[in-house]
Design a protein around this nucleic acid. Structure first.
Length: 939
RNA sequence: GCUCGAAUGGUGGAAUGGUAGACACGAGGGACUUAAAAUCCCUUGGCCUUUAUCGGCUGUACGGGUUCGAGUCCCGUUUCGAGCACCA
């Protein structure tokens, strides 16, 4: 009987649903395994063949683990909030919920065809109130927490208030936006608003006046990872720096834990490195500089404390609050002009045009070690957001300071013996110090490393500085001026942001008619009429009732995309719980994601936020583990393989690839679906677009050959391949096998539909092993032959090892080899073929179920035990050794498999041919490599 | 600029320091067939030799090194990709 994949696949899709094959419940009798894919954003374009790659890989692993006796959680859901749905709403007036719902249905339909073992009862959608309830809940918890540096964990804000009441800021070691100092009396004297403002300095979710990435094109602020080279990742609109009041998350408080945690997880080195770069830990020294003829002193941060004797000027960031304090009357006009000019420049302009600019403040600082007066400058090469926003400039040993000094004619004082600073600075942290001594500290003759240590010690003891660790990691801006996101569960009591009572969660996103930002510059939620909070009835009411006594306005911002995706892995453990994010029993059972699959583009976004969020929940006692994703695999992108036709300029004539150089041609993208093996279907091409109806062709060998290139898979390149089309033609099992066969999982590779025939042939060949021409099962019972056993056990070994190593492409090859061998042997042995079915089940579940049923297997093949291999069957009777002389193979010899190296050596040396090669030469060495080669070194 | 990673036939890609190119596509040839599809078999890195077999040389971006033996390890160069980028 022919292999009828359509009938087989639809039959099993129905049966799987009917039997609830993929339903998972917590089962203490089995070890758990949690497999997770980064959930998709359901875009309107639907899935292309690149999307399911990771899902297929994880599905194979999940099914494999299940067959090995694990209780496997393999859920799927949708990251449903996002900008495209909202922009579509602005254009069409359709509610984002409607389009999102439609897109999800389409995704689901496509996913269902591929035969995943997802437990759809556990589906989550970030835009559903039952889900974002817990996003809002976590935000409130963060609002009501601060980060204690001493115990390295989040603490309830009440504890901090108690500390303020008793001690003020004395003996305080907590994460904060800026170091404040006040006494208990001062704290107690503050009014409610002042207290609220003060606490914002410490809360983990806080409102802060910070420099943000403002994107006028999108009408919203963006997080650092949403901006690349001064333009927005989405849309490519210019982004400028602006000081705005925004909700922020104090991710920076967790910088050290985020860094340390990397050592305990099984992620690729490259992605760990990316995160380490992003966190950017830098160990250095903070030093106090007094301002000459003034009481003011300020702090700088440096990693090169050793260069303190080479400081010839100081630089402040233009945004620094010290600027107005240090600017002298004489310099004021010039400084104001400079600061204004800097403000006008966008981030993009600053990056594109790195000229040296700056202005003298008029003030001088005193070098705390030498007492020297040093001029204080202002320049935009110093960033306000890093360190203290002020630096000591050592032009001899820092290239940026050097460029500045050269430009403004400032002194350059070398400190390292033998360095030449006439052309460029000497930045390397090596060499012997010179010119570095005062009456108490003498660095001359020490190495740079020794000097850094000595200076640190000296300034700490003298009280003019301290050792400090800085991080590049900034707090995450957490509010967006958009509609389609989680509303903040916050109302404003006379300007004081106040959390909604917990029982009022979830605060549902209101319906509005107009999704555009309001004219007053308010977010779209400004259009909502029912958007005020009545503290008496604890209900959301109409804005017209706002009296600022009992009814107050609600927050208009919404949360960013990463809010909903930061803890979704916990929700899958217990998705219907309306009492908690996750029950402690479910959490205690599933613990963490054992295997997480997704693209590496989330390295500095989702994967940082999610780790941060989990650490916070751990501090709260909700999550039971420090790291949420024990093992991470970043699947590569599937790229498109575009095809081109070549139009001769100013004609409607197209010339085949091999002949195109004879003409002046323009390459034009052509739909890959009307090209096969790079040969154009000329008739389909004519029908493709009206302007090609009259097209003429210059062929070679009667064919039109297209050119090709690997590009991103996208509509505009006409290289998008839809999985539905592949499944219609070859079936889901073939698609699954082929996606794995394409190449290593973590590597990016182009999709080329041409190769799929090989996988389809393999599946048919396997089918034919089980059935005769009449479609009857032709299995035989009894002993399997030695060759059959050898073939199948080789496969068991290979596939088991490959799956454990996520090397799915080589297992597909192994299947092909084995099925070819078994076909050659005309194998019909039930035991051997039963092993084969169980091995193929994770890869091609539909045909495996069908064949499992055919051979009389019990239950679903999903639960059929994974076969074990027996080393004895793999043993050979004899092994062929290559005999080499000085590394060059000359001939081969066969030896019994159990023969020891000494005997082999003796026999090889005694051999006639060997004698011929070594005649007249001395044998220096004989190397016998077990089961491989005998190398005889002669000379 | 700094930090990672990669480079193997016409193509996708295999190779615990041990016969490079498994497996698949494509291509060429053949069998079956009225024909086509499907299926099966043979050849397929390059060069040389041979009627053919047998055989020889060369070959994993480039130049060195370690080793009996290197695609694999070490040093340098080139190219491509990724991350960070006035982070003091």
């Amino acid at each position: 009987m022919e292999y009828d994949f359509r009938q087989i696949e639809s039959k099993w899709h129905e049966l799987w649903v009917k039997r609830g094959t993929y339903k998972v419940t917590e089962d203490a009798s089995k070890p758990k395994y949690y497999v997770l894919n980064m959930f998709p954003y359901p875009s309107g374009a639907g899935l292309h063949v690149g999307h399911p790659l990771g899902y297929i890989a994880s599905d194979i692993y999940a099914r494999y683990k299940r067959q090995r006796g694990f209780n496997v959680l393999n859920p799927m859901g949708y990251d449903a909030y996002g900008l495209p749905a909202e922009q579509y709403a602005i254009q069409t007036g359709q509610h984002p919920a409607v389009t999102t719902e439609k897109n999800i249905a389409r995704y689901r339909e496509q996913l269902d065809k591929i035969g995943f073992s997802f437990d759809w009862d556990r589906e989550v959608r970030t835009c559903e109130p039952g889900y974002y309830h817990w996003t809002q809940w976590a935000f409130q918890k963060m609002f009501n927490s601060y980060y204690c540096n001493k115990c390295q964990c989040a603490q309830p804000i009440e504890k901090l208030i108690e500390h303020f009441e008793k001690q003020g800021t004395a003996a305080l070691d907590v994460a904060c936006s800026e170091e404040l100092t006040f006494s208990p009396a001062e704290w107690n004297a503050m009014d409610e608003k002042q207290k609220s403002d003060t606490l914002m300095n410490y809360r983990i979710a806080y409102q802060g006046e910070t420099m943000v990435n403002w994107c006028a094109g999108l009408g919203t602020v963006l997080a650092n990872d949403e901006v690349v080279e001064g333009v927005s990742v989405r849309g490519g609109f210019p982004v400028e720096q602006k000081k705005m009041r925004q909700w922020c998350l104090r991710v920076s408080a967790y910088a050290q834990r985020l860094l340390d945690g990397l050592d305990s997880i099984d992620w690729s080195d490259s992605i760990k490195e990316t995160q380490r770069n992003w966190i950017g830990r830098s160990e250095g020294t903070e030093m106090q500089f007094k301002v000459k003829d003034s009481d003011i002193q300020f702090t700088i941060f440096t990693t090169r404390a050793d260069t303190i004797f080479g400081v010839t000027f100081m630089v402040l960031a233009p945004e620094s609050e010290l600027v107005p304090q240090l600017t002298t009357a004489a310099q004021k006009a010039e400084v104001d002009a400079y600061v204004a000019a800097v403000k006008k420049r966008t981030e993009r302009e600053r990056i594109a045009d790195r000229r040296v600019t700056g202005v003298f403040s008029g003030s001088y600082a005193i070098n705390p070690l030498t007492g020297e007066s040093i001029p204080v400058w202002i320049s935009d090469y110093v960033l306000a957001g890093y360190g203290t926003g002020a630096i000591m400039a050592v032009p001899a040993h820092d290239s940026r300071d050097y460029a500045f000094a050269k430009h403004f004619g400032l002194e350059i004082r070398p400190l390292i013996e033998g360095c030449d600073v006439s052309e460029e600075s000497f930045d390397a942290k090596e060499g012997i110090m010179m010119n570095s001594a005062n009456s108490e500290l003498n660095l001359n003759g020490l190495t740079v490393k020794e000097s850094i240590a000595a200076t640190k010690k000296y300034v700490t003891e003298k009280g003019i500085g301290r050792v400090k660790v800085n991080y590049r990691l900034r707090d995450a801006i957490f509010s967006r001026q958009r509609y389609w996101g989680e509303p903040f569960p916050v109302y404003y009591r006379n300007g004081i942001p106040t959390m909604l009572p917990e029982e009022c969660l979830p605060l549902q996103l209101p319906e509005i008619k107009d999704y555009k930002p309001t004219e007053s510059g308010e977010p779209p939620l400004g259009h909502a009429t029912e958007w005020a909070f009545d503290t008496k009835t604890k209900k959301v009411v109409s804005k017209s009732l706002i009296d600022n006594v009992t009814v107050f306005p609600l927050e208009l911002n919404t949360m960013p995309g990463f809010a909903g995706s930061s803890a979704y892995y916990l929700r899958y453990m217990d998705p219907h719980n309306d009492k908690a994010l996750v029950s402690s029993s479910a959490d205690a059972y599933w613990k963490c994601v054992d295997l997480y699959l997704g693209g590496s583009e989330h390295a500095t976004g989702h994967l940082i936020y999610s780790r941060f969020w989990n650490k916070f929940l751990k501090d709260l006692g909700v999550s039971v583990v420090e790291e949420p994703f024990a093992k991470l695999i970043n699947q590569g992108m599937i790229q498109g393989r575009s095809n081109f036709v070549y139009r001769i300029k100013d004609t409607n004539t197209f010339v085949s690839l091999g002949l195109k150089d004879k003409y002046d041609t323009t390459p034009i993208h052509v739909d890959v679906n009307i090209v096969s093996n790079d040969i154009l279907d000329v008739e389909s091409f004519k029908a493709w677009r009206p302007e090609y109806e009259t097209a003429e062709f210059i062929l070679e060998d009667g064919k039109y050959i297209c050119g090709w290139a690997v590009e991103k898979m996208s509509k505009s390149m006409f290289n998008v391949v839809n999985p539905d089309v592949i499944i219609e033609k070859y079936g889901a099992d073939t698609l699954r096998m082929y996606e794995m066969f394409l190449g290593p999982l973590e590597q990016s590779k182009p999709w080329d539909t041409n190769g799929i025939d090989g996988c389809h042939r393999f599946i048919r060949k396997m089918w034919n092993l089980f059935t005769d021409r009449d479609g009857k099962s032709c299995l035989t019972d009894g002993e399997a032959s030695k060759d059959e056993l050898k073939s199948i056990h080789k496969l068991i070994k290979k596939v088991t090892e490959d799956i454990e190593n996520f090397s799915f492409n080589t297992s597909v090859s192994a299947f092909m080899i084995c099925v070819n061998e078994l076909s050659g042997l005309k194998c019909s042995n039930r035991a051997v073929l039963s092993d084969l079915v169980r091995l193929i089940a994770p890869f091609a579940p539909h045909i495996a179920e069908e064949l499992w049923e055919m051979i009389g297997g019990e239950g679903s093949v999903c639960d059929a035990a994974w076969p074990k291999y027996n080393e004895d069957y793999l043993k050979e009777d004899s092994i062929t050794y290559s005999i080499s002389f000085n590394g060059k193979t000359r001939f081969t010899m066969d030896f019994a498999a159990d023969m020891d190296a000494k005997t082999i050596e003796a026999q090889v040396l005694a051999n006639e041919k060997t004698q011929g090669y070594i005649e007249g030469k001395t044998i220096r060495k004989v190397i016998v490599v077990p089961r491989k080669i005998v190398n005889i070194v002669i000379g």
